[in-house]
Computed example of a mutant assay.
Amino acid sequence: MTIDAHQHFWRIARGDYSWMDDSVAAIRRDLLPPDLAPLAQAAGVTGTVAVQAAPTLEETEFLLSLSDTTPLIRGVVGWLDLTGDVPRQIDRLAHPRLRGIRPMLQDIPETDWILRDDVLTGLRQVAEAGLRMDALITPRHLALIDRLARALPELPLIIDHCAKPRFAGSDPGDNWRAGIQALARHPQVSCKLSGLANEFGPGWSAPRLRPVFDHVFACFGPERVMWGSDWPVLELAGTYAKWHAAAQEMAAELTLAEREALFGNTARRIYALDQEGEIQ
């Protein structure tokens, strides 16, 4: 079973996608489950994790409502205000497919915001509810997430898009490598093989992305790396089929068990996608 561990849906009229300026005009349209279904089917994808694309509770409720009528959605990573009344928000969002939350750290100017006392209190309450945190970060956050993992070992952390390495040719840089290696020392931290086509830009290919793949896989291993499409943001750089094929090419030398982990089993385990039940 292939799981796409990272994809989005949006309905523009909802009005809370503040990042959708002219630079993303190509994907600034309603993109919903019927748009993804044929792409997923062609790639053999049998389930997805739908991830928030706006920092509102309403966005999370929108995704959860889609999951009620879309069997393809196996889990939802939503958003909540970590500086507010977190238990009350979790009660509002309680749903059998809510699996985690994602503060949009890349958009917060204060790099160390995630280590504020009130945010840490909120994250402890997230962990107590049995939820995870997706980390939407860039290399400037790597040391902060290392400190977060030390402060809250009970909170599962999933690094989105391999922490968005900055490429110089095919080289993601020594600082990125060291940061990823440090995060991998924490057993509760895992990483998504996603978003790399967009970060590399024009001319991306499996060989050019392989240095990132090789390093992430060497650090985290098959039990803590999961493939995701980042669709429809992916469409700014390429197609669903091309990215899926590139990931398969990079993984060609892995064992069957390792490939099954990368393309499904790790996401199923880390996000508990086979479990249906209300959060605690």
Rank of each mutant, 00 (worst) to 15 (best):
P38N: 09
L64C: 13
T60H: 11
Q41P: 02
P34Y: 08
L57E: 07
D91Q: 15
S65P: 01
E59K: 05
D85T: 09
A53H: 08
L80S: 05
A54W: 04
L80R: 12
L66N: 08
L66C: 12
E58C: 00
P38Q: 05
L39A: 05
Q41E: 15
Q52G: 12
G78E: 10
P55K: 01
P38E: 05
G75F: 05
A42R: 15
A53M: 06
T69F: 04
V49M: 09
Q89K: 13
R74T: 01
P34T: 03
A54I: 11
L72D: 00
A37R: 13
L63K: 06
A42N: 11
L82V: 14
L39R: 13
T70Q: 02
T56V: 04
W79S: 05
L66Q: 13
A40S: 14
A43Q: 14
D81K: 04
T48P: 00
A43G: 12
P34Q: 10
P38D: 04
L66D: 01
T83R: 14
I90P: 03
P33V: 03
A37W: 00
E58M: 00
V49F: 04
T69L: 04
W79A: 06
P71D: 03
A37F: 01
L64Y: 11
Q41A: 15
E58D: 14
T70Y: 01
G84F: 06
P71I: 10
T83E: 15
E58Y: 00
E61V: 10
T69W: 00
D81H: 07
V51A: 12
G84Y: 03
W79M: 08
Q41C: 11
Q52Y: 10
R88K: 15
V51Y: 13
E58G: 14
P38T: 08
L82A: 13
V45N: 06
F62Y: 14
A54T: 11
V77N: 08
S65I: 03
V45Q: 03
R74D: 00
D85W: 12
S65H: 13
P55Q: 09
Q52D: 08
G44R: 07
T56S: 15
T70R: 02
D81I: 09
L57W: 05
P34R: 10
P71E: 02
D81W: 03
S65A: 15
T48I: 11
G75R: 04
W79N: 05
G44D: 13
L64I: 13
A40I: 04
L80G: 03
L66F: 12
T60N: 06
G78A: 10
Q52T: 12
V86L: 10
P34C: 08
L39Q: 12
G47L: 09
V45L: 09
F62R: 01
E59C: 11
L80C: 10
D85L: 11
T46W: 00
P87C: 04
L72R: 15
I73H: 02
P34D: 07
P87K: 09
G75I: 09
T70H: 01
F62V: 08
V45A: 09
I73Q: 01
P33A: 05
